[in-house]
Amino acid sequence: MKFLDALLGRSKPKQPKLDALFGVTGAAITLEAAAGMRPTGQAAVCFKPASGQGFAAAAEELHDLLELAVKEAGSTVSVTDDRYGYRWVVLTDPEMEDLVTSVHLVNSTLEQYGFGPQLLCSVFAFSTPEGQRFHLVYLYKRGTFYPFAPLGGERRDNELELRVKATLEGDLPIEPELGRWFALWGLPLG
């Protein structure tokens, strides 16, 4: 069908893969046991807001659902738009499982309204025993994870990233193409 789609000049919006996301809970345990790296309790979902009433309705329901979930679990939520026009829902909760559940809530709400293709990535923040921050990024369209360790001045700590990759290879589907380990400068996580 790929050939036919190319011939007809049509590409279907890529649907997100949501299942692998739950593997991040196990990965957090592995990271702590093997390297002493702990989650900071912060996570974020990044998506591209669409125009129109359809998306506005989805966003409203998302807001209400998150508010409810947050009250129940005792976590906090905030929303920011970055300068590239993507929206970040930032969640804070000391419990990794609650974080993953909240992230999934955002996913399933958007998907339910037909905006699944708008999902870009989810990010979970971790820190090394020395206090250096790094992030596990989940690519929805690939269903894979990759580590992103920003240093100052738009540089990346590739050594740490490759170490995290080696540690997690058994737990999570790690993105095999290094060219897709996109940088996310200025992401709104502490």
């Binding site: 890529k14 590239y84 993507y86 293709p117 690939r142 897709r180 996109f182």
Partner: peptide, 23 residues
């Protein structure tokens, strides 16, 4: 290169991730 045009590269990066295609 990404150093010469960081914004342009970031935009293309994200669109490629959104569309699932190689950069």
């Amino acid at each position: 290169s990404p150093e010469q045009a960081p914004e342009l590269h970031q935009m293309v990066d994200r669109l490629c991730a959104l569309a699932d295609m190689p950069k």
